[in-house]
Nucleic acid binder design. Structure first.
Length: 305
DNA sequence: AATACGGGGAG
DNA sequence: CTCCCAGTATT
């Protein structure tokens, strides 16, 4: 959960997750759709599937010990493997996260691209770790903490830094690490229609290969498509517009309520409680709430969380 | 080496 | 707006 996601964001998800799936065995035996519903809103949903798969393998074959063996599990990369192995087994391997990369980039005044920076930071951290009397877990924690609290992205406090003496970047820490040029934003528009009948909602599984694969959504078409044109001709009721940013794409989803025509025939029809438990992409969740307010507010139903 | 992959926190 | 978050897998 913590991969590329802030601790304060993760915390409530983690608590709910651990209450529901308290052991590896429980996790391995869980239904993937339910896992995704607990993950819903966190993003990077492949992490969820990978964690599930990793739990299955571990329950089947036992817990790894060495970093290299952890590394084989899906979703466990260099950072996570090193973090686990150094903490759980005291293995002297460097856990290099964004903090450590930044600390190293400034310390060595390096503007290398991310891949090389990461490798260099790992060697740097590991060589000093071995010279230190510090436990590997403590060393890793200390370096990450230094990056989070002192060598921070926006306001590095070089006066408080224990490495300032030897640091090559302290004159102008903001030059490191090098920022990659920002990509031009791509605008994408979708029409979303919300099939509703007799208190039920029609959803489909997001097809594989793109964003939100495997989650559930209301039918969606690019606005240029022929289906869209046909749809507009059916004069649906507008629900509203939802904007959402995904990396360098800016999405606009225009949502409409349709009660009869143009439903794909492979929809899953859910009542409101079932809809609430399905994992939906954030913008589709917002549309669900628009629809709920419009259609069933009078019945006293609560919005989706 | 570069890109896809979410969503949100914070300045 | 921008940058970046206790990264990983794929190309």
């Amino acid at each position: 959960m913590l991969q590329q996601t802030q601790v304060t964001t993760v915390l409530p998800y983690y608590e709910r997750w651990m209450a529901r799936f308290p052991t590896l065995k429980a996790l391995a035996a869980a239904d993937e759709q339910e896992l995704l519903s607990y993950w819903q809103g966190l993003g990077y949903y492949s992490r969820c599937r990978n964690l599930h798969e990793a739990a299955k393998r571990v329950v089947e074959s036992g817990l790894p010990t060495r970093s290299d063996d952890w590394r084989v599990l899906p979703g466990i990369g260099a950072y996570t493997a090193a973090a686990i192995a150094s903490i759980s087994a005291g293995e002297p391997v460097a856990a290099v996260d964004g903090n450590v990369e930044r600390v190293y980039a400034r310390f060595a005044a390096s503007q290398e691209p991310k891949a090389r920076l990461s490798t260099a930071a790992r060697k740097w951290s590991e060589s000093h770790m071995r010279l230190s009397t510090c436990e590997p877990a403590q060393w890793n924690q200390a370096l990450m903490e230094l990056g989070a609290r002192i060598c921070s992205p926006r306001n590095p406090d070089c006066r408080a830094c224990p490495l300032a003496n030897a640091c090559q970047g302290k004159g102008d820490p903001h030059r490191f690490p090098a920022k990659k040029p920002s990509r031009t934003v791509v605008e994408i528009s979708y029409t979303v229609w919300v099939p509703a009948r007799e208190g039920r909602w029609g959803v489909r599984r997001v097809p594989p290969g793109g964003w939100w694969a495997g989650l559930w959504e209301f039918p969606r078409r690019a606005e240029e498509s022929a289906l869209h044109q046909e749809f507009v001709g059916a004069s649906p009721r507008g629900l509203g517009e939802v904007r959402h940013q995904v990396t360098h794409h800016r999405l606009t989803l225009r949502a409409f309520l349709v009660e009869e025509a143009l439903w794909p025939n492979d929809l899953d029809w859910l009542d409101t409680d079932e809809l609430k438990r399905r994992a939906m992409p954030a913008p589709q969740r917002k549309i669900a709430n628009l629809a709920l307010r419009k259609v069933v507010a009078a019945n006293g139903l609560e919005p989706l969380t």
